[in-house]
């Protein structure tokens, strides 16, 4: 067996196991971590397919940012495991439907040649799909790309607008004002007249 084939089967096995752990793990944090592993091994498989840009972006965006925040939330939630287990069976029909659809899609892709789908010709050495992707994104698909960016921006603004509340009595100080503080604004020199110390020796005695 070729070295790359060994790697492929190794990664595929890890990916399947991790995927299984996502839905079977009792603890939600373990499930989220299994999802991280699944993303990471999927990225490894994509690199084997020479889609290095997509693979690295998967790790950067999903593993490096999305899952961190996901984990963040899952860790802070006070989750009732029993209730969660109950919902697991409630959602089974919908899950079965999604799984069925996925299987149909996989059959269509894997048996592509019988359905008239031809695999792309292998690319010559030195072909950079990062460059090709960039060219397509910024020329042919520049409007959809910009639209997607604006939609995401709107979502960010909406999320902030929904959760922003102004509280009264916050002791916040503008950093620019803090920097400009001078001694005169904080310290007051008081000129006290010298006083004669009380004669205490008589009292003590």
């Amino acid at each position: 067996m070729e070295f790359s084939a060994v790697i492929f089967y190794l990664f595929a096995a890890i990916l399947l196991l991790a995927g299984l752990r996502v839905i079977t793990a009792k603890n939600p944090v373990h499930a989220a971590l299994a999802l991280v592993l699944a993303f990471f091994t999927a990225a490894g498989l994509w690199i084997l397919l020479e889609a290095e840009f997509l693979a690295i972006t998967l790790v950067l965006v999903y593993v490096g940012a999305v899952m961190v925040l996901f984990l963040f939330v899952v860790m802070m939630l006070d989750i009732n495991l029993e209730q969660l287990r109950q919902q697991f069976w409630d959602y089974l029909p919908i899950a079965a439907l999604v799984a069925g659809l996925l299987i149909v899609q996989m059959i269509l892709v894997l048996g592509g040649e019988t359905f008239g789908l031809n695999p792309p010709a292998p690319k010559p050495a030195g072909y950079s799909n990062t460059k090709e992707l960039g060219l397509l994104l910024y020329t042919e698909y520049v409007y959809p790309f910009e639209l997607a960016a604006v939609i995401l921006l709107v979502a960010i603004v909406a999320a902030i607008a929904l959760t922003l509340r102004r509280r009264a009595g916050v002791k916040w100080v503008d950093p620019a004002v803090q920097v400009k503080v001078k001694r005169e604004g904080r310290v007051r020199l008081v000129n006290l007249k010298p006083q004669k110390p009380q004669a205490q020796s008589e009292e003590d005695a």
Binding site: F53, I56, T57, V59, V63, G64, L71, T130
Partner: peptide, 22 residues
Amino acid sequence: NIDASLLYILAITSMGVYGVII
């Protein structure tokens, strides 16, 4: 010596936070 080495660095270093969180 890969083409997207800068992206690779960015992706791999973004994994470092997991150690701390876990």
